[in-house]
Every structure is written in structure tokens, then in C-alpha cells.
């Protein structure tokens, strides 16, 4: 199945199932989860593109849950939903917890679908970028990291104690392996 994967986390099983069904009707492979802790335990074998999570939940709240998911997988988009909206939480959810949106219950369906669609697209782009840099050698990775910070070859050579010629070779290898067409595209991979 190629549908994008979405996990819906809400301690109200009816609502979670309802949101998951709604997303499935719109072409997402959505699954409801009642317990965030249980989802974390199996997340490794069931990663998602996007997670829609409630904020106020029993033992583990939505924000703490988001932090822990991110620690496992930094390529997953997160959308928060809550019945207790506050401005402070709305700001935090986006700034500190990297949420894509903060939805008030009762949920605005169109906004939810837009957020999830955007989240899936972001997640896929990020995963692709990851995949392209995944098979760099450790030395190539070092060169790559410095190059994308905007350092010229000469500085990279100094920092790593290599000759400019060697750096030049690594650079060519990095471009070849990632399929990038220059520095700008390399930098885009890190975004």
C-alpha cells in the first residue's frame, strides 16, 4: 500500500477512530491510537509521515509525546488538536514542538486535511533528502556538513587537515552520490 501513513492519537477512542476514518476517506493510511506510550513502543516498526495528536491526554501529554517521537524519527510531521486552546499553547506547539498546526476541537475538517496533506509532503521531502545523504562515507559527511554551512574548499581543507585537492575530490563524490547539481541544491537537502 502506497498511501501516506498517518497516526491519530487521542485518548477518546471514538474521536480517534472518527478522525482516522475521515483521513482514510481522503486517501491516507490512518490508524487511531488511544495510548501514546503504546504507540512509542512500536513506532520503530510502524513509522508514519504525519501524526495527529491530542494535547491533553492522561499520562503523556501531546507535547511530551511529540518530543519523544521526534527523538526516534525527525522526519515525521506533527499536527496538534485540543479542546482547551490557549494562545500560549498555540505558540509553543509551533515554535517549541515543531507542530505544523494547532487545531481547536470541534475540528475544522478542511483545515485538518490541509495540515495533514502539507505534513505528509514535508515528511516525504525530508525522507528523500535523508536517503540521498545516507550513503556518504564518514569523511564525505564531514565535508558535506562544512560545505552546506557555506565554507569554501580552502577552509574545509584547513579544518579537516586535508589538502584542497582531496576536498575537491570529496566534493565531487558528494555531488555524485546525492545527485545534487551544485552547492545550492546540497544546502536544500539539509532543510
Amino acid at each position: 500500500m502506497n498511501d501516506p501513513i498517518v497516526h491519530v492519537v487521542d485518548d477518546d477512542p471514538d474521536l480517534g477512530a472518527s478522525v482516522a476514518r475521515l483521513l482514510r476517506r481522503h486517501g491516507f493510511a490512518a490508524e487511531p491510537f488511544v495510548d501514546p506510550a503504546a504507540l512509542l513502543a512500536v513506532y520503530d516498526i510502524a513509522p508514519a509521515h504525519c501524526i495527529v495528536t491530542d494535547v491533553m491526554m492522561g499520562d503523556l501529554d501531546g507535547f511530551a509525546f511529540a518530543d519523544r517521537v521526534r527523538a526516534i524519527d525527525d522526519g515525521v510531521a506533527i499536527v496538534f488538536m485540543t479542546a482547551w486552546p490557549t494562545t500560549a499553547n498555540a505558540v509553543d506547539s509551533v515554535r517549541r514542538y515543531g507542530g505544523l498546526d494547532y487545531l481547536e476541537k470541534p475540528i475544522d475538517e478542511d483545515r485538518l486535511l490541509a495540515a495533514v496533506t502539507e505534513g505528509v509532503a514535508w515528511s516525504k521531502a525530508r525522507r528523500t533528502a535523508h536517503a540521498r545523504t545516507a550513503n556518504l562515507t564518514p569523511r564525505e559527511r564531514q565535508v558535506f556538513d562544512l560545505l552546506v554551512q557555506g565554507h569554501p574548499n580552502k577552509v574545509v581543507a584547513d579544518r579537516l587537515g586535508l589538502s584542497p585537492k582531496t576536498v575537491e575530490d570529496h566534493r565531487a563524490a558528494v555531488l555524485a552520490k546525492t545527485g545534487a547539481n551544485g552547492l545550492a541544491q546540497l544546502i536544500a537537502l539539509t532543510k
Binding site: 477518546d12 476514518r21 476517506r25 476541537k105 475540528i107
Partner: peptide
């Protein structure tokens, strides 16, 4: 009233999605 709003909005979310469907 805030507590009441919260309590209502939870089942109402489900109701709203299912009613549209």
C-alpha cells in the same frame, strides 16, 4: 463554563465529523 465547553467539544468533534460523513 470553560469546563462545560471542554466536555461538550470532545464528543461534538466526533459527532461533527460523523454527521458530515
Amino acid at each position: 463554563s470553560v469546563a462545560v465547553i471542554h466536555e461538550i467539544s470532545q464528543p461534538l468533534s466526533t459527532l461533527s465529523i460523523e454527521a458530515r460523513h
